[in-house]
Amino acid sequence: MVERTVATQQTQQVAPTAEGTRERERYVAPPVDIYETPEGLVVMADLPGVSKDDLEVRVDNHVLTIRGRARPAVQADPIYREYELVNFFRQFELTEKIDESRITAELKHGVLTLHLPKAEEAKPRKIEVKVA
């Protein structure tokens, strides 16, 4: 699994000639764990402050995109700060061996868990050895 930080084709639109009115949004890459099981890959990402509605997970041209908007849980005057909740963005390039139609996602306690099942032909098969 190769990480790709360049934007996908879709987001590369015409280069703006003037500065946009909105300030460009800032993103951080969420820390992830990725491990392999016989069935496929599991991706776990820490996305604190991101609710289900503010999370976008998509697969385009074998690129997995995780994008989330973190919102603070408290609406009051800040008096002390150690972190800033900014948006999350990270992309991974998937190999051909992932069955993209069967990817499942689950968000619990601020952790996104993605199951990326291997395509049938990529699953390990046990070959029985016949003794002649």
Binding site: P48, I79, Y80, E82, H109, G110
Partner: peptide, 22 residues
């Protein structure tokens, strides 16, 4: 990591703790 907020009646401590078993 924590952020602390305040209003007239209370203090609010917000901690960044994803994946913690409640």
């Amino acid at each position: 990591l924590v952020n602390i907020y305040a209003d007239r009646d209370a203090l609010y401590v917000e901690a960044l703790a994803p994946g913690v078993d409640p």
